[in-house]
Design a protein around this nucleic acid. Sequence first.
DNA 1: TATAACATGTAACTAGTTACATGATTGG
DNA 2: CCAATCATGTAACTAGTTACATGTTATA
Lengths: 183, 183
Amino acid sequence: MLKYAILGFLKYRPHTGYEIKQTMDKSTGHFWHAKQSQIYTTLKKLKEGGLVISHPEPQESRPDRRVHIITESGGKELQKWLSQPVTKLDDSKVILLLKLFFSGKENKETILTQLRLQRSLHERQFELYKTEPTDFIQEVVASQPDLKRDALLWEATRRFGELHEEIYIRWLDETIAMVEKKF
Amino acid sequence: MLKYAILGFLKYRPHTGYEIKQTMDKSTGHFWHAKQSQIYTTLKKLKEGGLVISHPEPQESRPDRRVHIITESGGKELQKWLSQPVTKLDDSKVILLLKLFFSGKENKETILTQLRLQRSLHERQFELYKTEPTDFIQEVVASQPDLKRDALLWEATRRFGELHEEIYIRWLDETIAMVEKKF
DNA sequence: TATAACATGTAACTAGTTACATGATTGG
DNA sequence: CCAATCATGTAACTAGTTACATGTTATA
């Protein structure tokens, strides 16, 4: 899957491996991310498959930048993937729920501490969704009006994150209240 | 992590690898799952680490059942994990959002088809959360009253799934309307 | 004076998936 | 008669993480 994310970013403009990591963290970070090392190994595979080409840009006192460009066949591969419907649900893994599920014999305070800590983490994340990425989107649209549709979809993914955190916090409050009362 | 899920199930009662898969699918399936093969390999590692022991139950005309029991050291390992706070957010991967993010140049109908298909998938999942698991929890509590606290937490995890699907559907409706109007 | 940012990559490892191998019994 | 359920496991693979290796320049 990372393969497609990388092709997607390269479709907008050439990137070095380092830049892909940065762009990804700022944009798809909350629903798709990767470590720097995995980006480099995936780029290597994409090059081997002819979906991407790269050329070095010499630099002094630093390793040469290696700029990656999507090829025609890479563009087709991306397009093919984009047109295919997603026919099943993601399989999510939520560590907190796993722990909670088996916590019936833990004491009340341990569970409440756990839940309250989560609440603070999600509260912070919720605030991030409400501010940061919107600015970024506005900037891009101002400078490149042809990305207006793209920006609408980016905003939709941001909105997803915001709603997700909102509901998470609501659930935590509900659950904290339940444990306080019935446990 | 699967390691702890398995220890958690074995804490309730002995299981064969096959039964762990079934129990997991019915209970933690929506926030933690594993393939049968991974369960077998993880059980093997747990045995090697002395956290679990197993003994075969001979059967005719079928491979012997191998019943697994948690050891004292396995119990301690589980307990240690349960008492530790979860200090960071899960890193989630949502394929639909990744695809949507890069779909600025797709045509309107492709995107709407994509979103409507997702809506039907999540609608079905939402219905599942509202019925199935509640029955299961009620049965257990009726037969084992000492699991009342456990049942409260199981219900909380079910509720999470329900809320999650509800918000997902709300977001899909919002996004479908946005695409219909502005794209 | 230390640490963050810039910039590349490989090696070893853990986690998880898919495919293979085997084979009887039960229900539709 | 065919598919599902019961029941075990290994092998080969893909995806992802952590650790290693190298080194400069700007900033706090």
